[in-house]
């Protein structure tokens, strides 16, 4: 059996321990998770883990993207915001250092393993920066990466997560541009006009690669705008939460 397949029912459950909790703002946190049973947790930047949420008798899980790159090693980081009446996020917000966390993974095909040949544009809103942060940290660590641009929106500066980190990276890497936008909605829809102006109307080049991440149908609107403008289907990758 090749080593990238897992027998049905035999998926490995990892027992992590929360090492540290970081508050980004009033409703967004990172959980830093150590997985003592492995030296290295293998994953591709952009992938997520499926975290067990023990509620009553039910076998619930929620997906959380790994927010650090594989080169960063352990602890792993997930970053999440509290959802009104959301059972998963409320459960995780109730956990502190030392609490156990079971999960399976990694999963997902919204990934950047080898930086593309062409300019790569990352588009994100709020907490959906998590998988993209992993991709950017990874890409910036590879030599000869193409120009990278991060177009990132949130409702206020406090929700533009990792802002200082991206500003520092942009000052260190001339090939990385960080474009932060505070918008009333804080949603990807607030970026549509700018995406159209910069990547559709400004030039006829269609050789960029896009990674788009956010919540709900706005993600599909960005996808549709870019594909309708002539970008290849595979050049517009997205993950919709």
């Amino acid at each position: 059996m090749p080593d990238n397949v897992v027998q049905r029912g035999a998926r490995r459950v990892y027992q992590g321990v929360i090492e540290h909790v970081t508050a980004h703002n009033a409703d967004t946190r990172s959980l830093l998770i150590r997985v003592p049973e492995v030296n290295e947790f293998h994953f591709v930047p952009g992938q997520f883990i499926s975290v067990a949420i023990p509620i009553d008798e039910r076998r619930e899980t929620r997906a959380y993207s790994l927010a650090l790159s594989p080169q960063d090693g352990q602890p792993l980081e997930i970053c999440l915001n509290l959802i009104a009446e959301g059972v998963g996020s409320h459960y995780l917000f109730g956990l502190g250092p030392g609490a156990p966390l079971s999960f399976t993974g990694p999963f997902g095909l919204f990934t950047l393993e080898h930086p593309r040949e062409y300019e790569t544009v990352f588009v994100a809103e709020g907490t959906a920066i998590a998988p993209i942060r992993a991709m950017i940290r990874h890409a910036l660590g590879t030599s000869g990466h193409p120009p990278l641009t991060l177009l990132y929106t949130a409702a206020d500066q406090a929700h533009l997560l990792y802002r200082a980190e991206f500003e520092t990276l942009a000052s260190q890497h001339p090939n990385f541009r960080f474009e932060q936008r505070v918008s009333a909605s804080g949603r990807l829809s607030a970026l549509l006009d700018e995406i159209e102006a910069r990547y559709v109307r400004a030039d006829a080049g269609r050789e960029r690669h896009f990674y788009v991440c956010g919540v709900g149908n706005d993600v599909l609107r960005v996808r549709d705008l870019l594909r309708a403008a002539g970008y290849a289907r595979r050049a517009v990758e997205y993950e919709r939460w």
Partner: peptide, 15 residues
């Protein structure tokens, strides 16, 4: 049909 193997793109490689 529920396949015997589930594709797992990256990992769960043995240590």
């Amino acid at each position: 049909v529920i396949p015997r193997y589930t594709i797992n793109q990256a990992a769960e490689r043995p240590e």
